[in-house]
Structures are given as structure tokens and as C-alpha cells.
């Protein structure tokens, strides 16, 4: 591997990400400032005396001209200052630090379920095209994609928590069961402290939300892996591999399947946005105390400042993830770098 070409490729991607961040932030700013009135009045109007409202507005710089607010916003976002909520004494950064680990833990576990399910069912479906397995696999993929995650979640709760009583349906491990919080990632925390009881507890809380979320995203993976598999299976180099007398499983795995997985990495990046959207619903369904849940609560409280800060953070993460995916694709596929 030539480090030079990879380095140049990464630099190129980084440069391309800058206008993207800029435009995304501008759009968000415009969107959130399209609402009439000012955030303080919208949030606290009627609850505080007018003098105090005016004071809070002045303190937050809401009396400045719109372009000053805009530049302050962009400057803050770039330097990692996402502002302060109106209804919460913590800064947005602190809120993100408190809640994001829960969301990331859920998202990673969900993605794991999705990839395992999608890749196996999708690849086998593609190989056995138009057989009953393929039709069944496709229908299953469509059905689980069509099921709203909150509905699947509720049914799972009904069956596993209420009827069978085997799995918890709410919250992460709480109270005395929670591991000593070091990083905020409970699975990780309980492993490094060697607290096996806590680990079991954490995992049991994670199962239902992760599987619910993973099923949904897995539906998309099934579809995509299957299509990619169909395309690589009929590719010239797969035929050539057969002509060299390679064993069928080598042809399937090393030649068809491996190349079919490249687009999956890209798709994982694209699905990340969808994963966040569905994390909002999953967290609400399972009262999972994550970032998405916090966002929904702030929207409910009409706290513009908090919403703006959290959404900005999400936007930056999305650009970061897509950058990461580009780099990852460059590492896997030698052709991309040229």
C-alpha cells in the first residue's frame, strides 16, 4: 500500500467535508430561526416576569443582529461550544457527554445485530436467487423494514417482559445494578471493573432495544447485500474464478461475497442517519436515557437553544461518520485511492 496516495486521499476527503459542514450548519440556523419570536419567550414566556425575560435575552445575545448571532453560532460550533440550554443548567456539551454514551452503546449494538442479520440473510438470498429461501428472505427484510421500530419494541416488551417476564423493558441498568460509571458505556464499564453481575444486568437491558433497532436496519441490509451479491455473482471475475476450478465456497466467499461487502461499508455510513432517527424512537419506547431522548425532551420543552446545540452536534457527527466511511472504503478497496 502506498501511504502517499492514501494520505492524499484522506486530505482530499477532509477538504470536501468543510463546505458540507458549513452549509449544513447554515441550513440548521436558518431553519431554527424561521420560527417567530425569540427562544426565551417561546420557552419561558408567561412563566417569568417580563424584566427577567428581557435580561435573559440580553444575556444570551438574542438582541444582537441576526448575522452576529449567526457568526457566533458558527464560531461556537467550530470551536466545540454548542451553547447553553434555557431550561437546563448544564451546557449542551455536558448534556452530550452525559447522554451520548447510552445512545452510542445502543447504536453499536443495534448495528451489530443489523449487520449480522443483513449480511447472512442477504448473501444467502442472493446466492439462492428466486428460490423459496430468497423469496422468504426478501419478504422478511421488507416486513421488518416496514414495521415501525416503536411498534416492534412494544410487541417485544409485551411478549418478553410482560408475558414471559424474562427481559427488562425500560431504562438501562439502574440504581444498585448499574456498574460504577467510568466512561458512561455500561458494557465497557462493567467489563473493566470486572463486575460480572452488573454486566449481565446491563446486557439484559440492552437486548430488547438493540434487537428492535437492529431488526429494522437489518431489513435494509438484507436488501442491499442481496442485490450486491446478485451483481458480483454474475461478474466477469467470478466466472473467471470458476473457470480456474476454485471450490464453490471459495468463489462465493472470497470472490463474490467480499466484493459485495464494499458497498455495505458505504451504506453503513448512509444508514447512520437513519439509525439516529430510529434511535430517537427506540429510546422513547424503552425510556433509554440517551441523547435522542434528551433532544425529544428539549423539543417538548420548546428549548430552542438546547435543540440547536444538540442538532448541531448530531450534524457534525454525521459529517464525521461519512468522512470515516470514505477513508475506510479507501483502505478496503485499493482502486478508490486512485
Amino acid at each position: 500500500m502506498k501511504v502517499g496516495s492514501l494520505g492524499r486521499y484522506i486530505a482530499q476527503r477532509l477538504l470536501l467535508a468543510i463546505p458540507m459542514v458549513f452549509i449544513l450548519l447554515t441550513l440548521l440556523f436558518l431553519l431554527l430561526h424561521a420560527a417567530p419570536g425569540d427562544p426565551v419567550t417561546a420557552t419561558l414566556g408567561g412563566r417569568l416576569p417580563p424584566e427577567e425575560l428581557a435580561q435573559r435575552k440580553e444575556a444570551l445575545g438574542l438582541n444582537d443582529p441576526i448575522y452576529v448571532q449567526y457568526f457566533r453560532y458558527i464560531g461556537g460550533a467550530v470551536t466545540g461550544d454548542f451553547g447553553n440550554p434555557i431550561t437546563d443548567p448544564r451546557s449542551v456539551v455536558q448534556i452530550v457527554l452525559d447522554t451520548a454514551p447510552a445512545t452510542i452503546e445502543l447504536a453499536v449494538a443495534g448495528m451489530l445485530v443489523a449487520v449480522m442479520l443483513g449480511v447472512t440473510v442477504g448473501a444467502v438470498s442472493g446466492r439462492l436467487r428466486d428460490t423459496p429461501f430468497d423469496i422468504g428472505g426478501r419478504l422478511f427484510g421488507i416486513l421488518i423494514y416496514a414495521a415501525p421500530v416503536f411498534w416492534t419494541g412494544l410487541l417485544a416488551q409485551l411478549y418478553f417482559s410482560v408475558n414471559l417476564g424474562v427481559l427488562p423493558s425500560q431504562q438501562r441498568a439502574g440504581g444498585f445494578d448499574a456498574p460504577e460509571s467510568i466512561t458512561g458505556f455500561y458494557v465497557f464499564d462493567s467489563i473493566i471493573t470486572g463486575d460480572m453481575a452488573a454486566l449481565g444486568n446491563v446486557l439484559s437491558h440492552l437486548v430488547l432495544p438493540a434487537v428492535t433497532l437492529g431488526l429494522l436496519v437489518g431489513g435494509i441490509f438484507i436488501r442491499l447485500v442481496r442485490v450486491n451479491m446478485l451483481q458480483t455473482l454474475r461478474s466477469d471475475y467470478v466466472e473467471a474464478a470458476r473457470a480456474r476450478g476454485l471450490k464453490e465456497h471459495v468463489v462465493l466467499f472470497r470472490h463474490a461475497f467480499k466484493t459485495a461487502l464494499i458497498p455495505i461499508v458505504t451504506i453503513m455510513g448512509l444508514q447512520f442517519a437513519m439509525l439516529i432517527g430510529n434511535a430517537v424512537l427506540t429510546e422513547k419506547t424503552f425510556t433509554w436515557p440517551g441523547l435522542a431522548q434528551a433532544l425529544v425532551n428539549f423539543i417538548g420543552a420548546r428549548d430552542y437553544a438546547a435543540v440547536q446545540g444538540i442538532v448541531t452536534f448530531i450534524a457534525l457527527v454525521i459529517v464525521g461518520v461519512s468522512l470515516l466511511i470514505d477513508i475506510l472504503t479507501g483502505l478496503i478497496d485499493p482502486r478508490v485511492r486512485y
Partner: peptide
């Protein structure tokens, strides 16, 4: 591209949140 990259549901929530003011 920016709109496309953003989580559709979160975008829809923000829009309905802003629209609710009108």
C-alpha cells in the same frame, strides 16, 4: 447533500416544531 445526510426523522421533527409556531 446536507439535507440528505441529515436524519430524516430528526429533520421532520424540527420542521414540525418550527411550523407549530405558525
Amino acid at each position: 447533500d446536507a439535507v440528505y445526510a441529515f436524519p430524516p426523522l430528526v429533520l421532520a421533527i424540527i420542521v414540525s416544531f418550527v411550523l407549530a409556531a405558525y
